[in-house]
């Protein structure tokens, strides 16, 4: 699947690059969904990389296919998890042990990259040692500005807050601390007048 070209946006919105193999003894790769394809391409670009890599992978709705392909790459360690939150304790443990010079590769959905980026930064990994590449779903992780609840995997604008039930429109304003975009009540000035939801970027 080709990379999606995000349209130009405001300055708080993250931009993602393309993963490139870096030099170093230790490599940590965190991916979900189609992010697996970016890792497969990394392995192809540098045949020696995987033997020095720990992969944390969440298939999302992609089935078992990618997991098999990642196994075939022969990574030093491979973890396949059911969800990002389930993988967090393990991720923290791995980051707590991080050696100087650890290279971090994040790929997949924006929600995964944003949250894993925060874990890496909190563990003291320098920004310059973290790469990102968006792959797969365009879903957004949204914070409801009213109730503060996070709704994962938002695909439409507007959407319903999974916590307070308000209909929210999807802003491009993004908080790296929360790893989330901002959702604001769409019918605040005209209660009940809720536009039909439109698929993001359609």
């Amino acid at each position: 699947m080709p990379n999606f070209e995000f349209p130009a946006s405001i300055k708080s919105r993250p931009v993602y690059g393309r993963l490139e193999p870096r030099k170093g003894k230790f490599h940590l790769m965190i991916a979900d969904g189609e992010g697996a394809e970016a890792l497969i391409e990394l392995a192809a670009a540098d045949g020696a990389l995987m033997a020095k890599s720990h992969i944390i992978y969440i298939p999302r709705d992609t089935g078992a296919g990618f997991a098999e392909k990642l196994t075939a790459l022969g990574p030093a360690q491979l973890y396949i998890g059911p969800s990002y939150p389930a993988a967090v304790p393990r991720l923290r443990r791995v980051l707590a042990d991080a050696h100087m010079g650890l290279q971090v590769y994040l790929t997949g959905t924006e929600g995964l990259m944003g949250q894993a980026m925060n874990e890496a930064m909190a563990a003291g990994i320098p920004h310059s040692a973290i790469q990102t590449e968006h792959r797969g779903s365009l879903a957004r992780r949204m914070q409801c500005v009213h109730c503060k609840g996070i709704t994962e995997d938002v695909m439409t604008d507007p959407f319903v807050c999974s916590h307070c039930g308000l209909h929210l429109f999807v802003r491009d304003h993004y908080s790296r601390r929360l790893a989330a975009f901002q959702g604001v009540r769409v019918d605040a000035e005209d209660p009940g007048n809720i536009p039909d939801p439109v698929e993001l970027y359609s």
Partner: peptide
């Protein structure tokens, strides 16, 4: 604007929603 949302941002990030000025 929301402090809870903007806390931790830099000057360009918290001003991101402002039109024209950038």
């Amino acid at each position: 604007w929301s402090l809870d949302f903007d806390i931790g941002m830099n000057f360009f990030e918290w001003h991101a929603p402002v039109p024209k000025a950038h």
